[in-house]
Amino acid sequence: MLRTEGLTRHFRVGKLLSRQTLHAVDDVDLTIGSGEIVALVGESGSGKSTIARLLALVYRPTRGEIWFEGRPLSRLRGRRSRLAYSAAVPMVFQDPYSSINPAYRISHAIVRGMKLHRGDLSGSGRGAELNRVLEEVGLVPASYTQRRFPYELSGGQRQRVGFAQALALRPKLIVADEPVSMLDVSIRIGVLNLMGELREREGVSFLYITHDVASARYLADRVLVMYAGHLVEEGATEDVLQRPKHPYTQLLVSAVPDPRAELGLADARDVGEPPKVVDPKPGCRFRPRCPFAVAECETVTPALRELSDGRRVACHVAE
């Protein structure tokens, strides 16, 4: 349904006279199928949110293309077609406190999007749809919730409002950038379960961006692993997390804290340095931290290659 080809986004950084290029996202090919939940995991600064913003048309790609339902987005012309795409691929953000205007009731937050994107609905049609989406995300009774102001709701409830806003647009794919990381742990599971239910009931796909690998395992069908702007591994969730092939994925999975395990500082400190994405040279970006690096890793950027069905890894030595 959505596919990217060589998706790349660079930024200029540094002082005026010593401009450098930061490679936030380089050459990413990803696909998201209809009704699929795909998790995007990776290190801080690896480019996950940049991908989300590229998909949401907040940033333009430096290079590469995004295809949605067979059509390239670079050829979206005019306000109407951009609006239609934004309704089909809405975003839900990390911070449920700043993503809803505090001055208006919940009904306003949801109806505003419908007025903009769903000209097909009459006033009463919008009212019915408002009730439907609030019930769909578990904010019941809907007649009560829609009269509330954002400050009257808990963080988890506001995040549900974020999903209700997205649902009201009749989305095909919801891009959720760290939707639970600012919520109390006691209610995170509820929001994860909600995403799973919305996929079942409404057939929406999700790109679930997270740094919580265990929650990716809980929710997603497939997982994509980013490192320093590159997609380094992809495959069925259970397959990738139980048998990680890329050395970074192996490090990632081994670092997941397990409170049931013996307490104490068991693991040695990761000896790595932060990945160089400012004017990077060719070669594997994980090389300075990689225990398996060979000479080739210094000079040749590993491309994603298929190891087995649906399992792709960008590493010279993985097999």
Partner: peptide
């Protein structure tokens, strides 16, 4: 009981991948 619930509220990376209910209700 709240501490107990918290310990049960997050998914695991290694054990069985069972559906979790979390703690019902909200703060």
């Amino acid at each position: 009981p709240y501490s107990h619930g918290l310990l049960e509220a997050f998914p695991s990376i290694r054990g069985p991948n069972a559906r979790l209910a979390g703690i019902p209700g909200s703060p």
